[in-house]
Design a protein around this nucleic acid. Sequence first.
DNA 1: CGAATAGTGTCTGTGAGACAGTATTCT
DNA 2: AGAATACTGTCTCACAGACACTATTCG
Lengths: 221, 221
Amino acid sequence: MADTEERPILTVDVVLFTVRGGRLQVALQRRDRTPFKRRLALIGGYVHVDEDVDTASTAKRVLREKAGLSGIFLEQLMTFSGARRDPRGWSASVAYYALVPETALAPVLEQDMVITPVEEVASLPFDHETIVAEGVKRLQSKGAYSSLPAFLLPPEFTMPQLREIYETVMRTSLNDSAFRRKIEELQLIEPVSGAFSKASARPAQLYRLRRAVLQEFDRKL
Amino acid sequence: MADTEERPILTVDVVLFTVRGGRLQVALQRRDRTPFKRRLALIGGYVHVDEDVDTASTAKRVLREKAGLSGIFLEQLMTFSGARRDPRGWSASVAYYALVPETALAPVLEQDMVITPVEEVASLPFDHETIVAEGVKRLQSKGAYSSLPAFLLPPEFTMPQLREIYETVMRTSLNDSAFRRKIEELQLIEPVSGAFSKASARPAQLYRLRRAVLQEFDRKL
DNA sequence: CGAATAGTGTCTGTGAGACAGTATTCT
DNA sequence: AGAATACTGTCTCACAGACACTATTCG
């Protein structure tokens, strides 16, 4: 092969999800460099071979440096690649998705970051719209069979809040008593003894996840 | 950044699955080049930016050139990356998995290719054992909720064959009448009129997939 | 007290597993 | 006829949805 054939560009992009006002939303950021400078796009960046041990590290670094976030749920989505997706040349982007509770996102919201409902995401550069769409698909299909949606909530939450976040992610309404029954049987959460939320008419028991990692189950919620 | 920092290496590796003798097996190939020359490893290769439009094309090309296979089921698994996984330097490998019926694999089996039961895969170079393990995990979890296992069968197959392939992939035994009922309700397959397999005591109706693409469902088989 | 939301108890229908029983072919 | 495998019918149990009912707080 000719020496003129360069290696492809390798980047990482993160679809950062949150739920606000009962709607699933994505964080977008104005690009600070060319190409597509000043356009809204996914949070992302180049892999730095000298400081990132793998692409997950790149994703964490980018979330920290560009969004001021750390310690949030992060998982690989898939890789998007091609000769045409980036004007700079043949490129591959390893996409990740991250979940953050609105309460944790609000303090770090800077002027260059925008939170948009997933249905309203439009005119993103590269193939970022495809990446968002795939992220939403993954979130929905995995959400029904795992504790994934719980990572969109603060560490302590009520049953109705948990049900609502599942409803938002899965785009359905869930039967309340059946939901409680299933959550109970799965032993996903534990009550925080003596802690109640007074956000609504009747105080609600606060719960927390029993395990901080993603739990998958074989029944649908 | 110093000019000495090169771009990462980008490769594609394919976990090629088949079922033979009631066991899930993986195709491995002796490497024809350094590093790990002559060692058994996954079928893979560099992304060729001048001829591959994306990494899926790379996977198809590699399957064609190195295994003589085309037109088989292929799907992206995930990307494995890191500074240490390849002695040549920081690298990322976009892994795919492919499914091929034993009948289609047999004719192209060359001397440098080996079919090994997944439980016996050992001492592979790079992180190829991890990749195989992830492929198996994906096959199992996706197999229970989709027509995926059917792509391990030839185009025409009997009900018992279909059940057996699901049992092999899912590592369980399935209730025969319940399986037929569910398959019937899902309208996944259609009988080939007048075609029967005479491989067993009583001839069995031959079926084919109604759609050539992967179907996902929300019930477990 | 009534509104609002949290939480519980019970009925019913659906669907899956179990398994008996029938069908078809071969030796 | 009997073995072997394909295929069907039916019973029962578990689970999920529906929904009525109770509990707790606030205005």
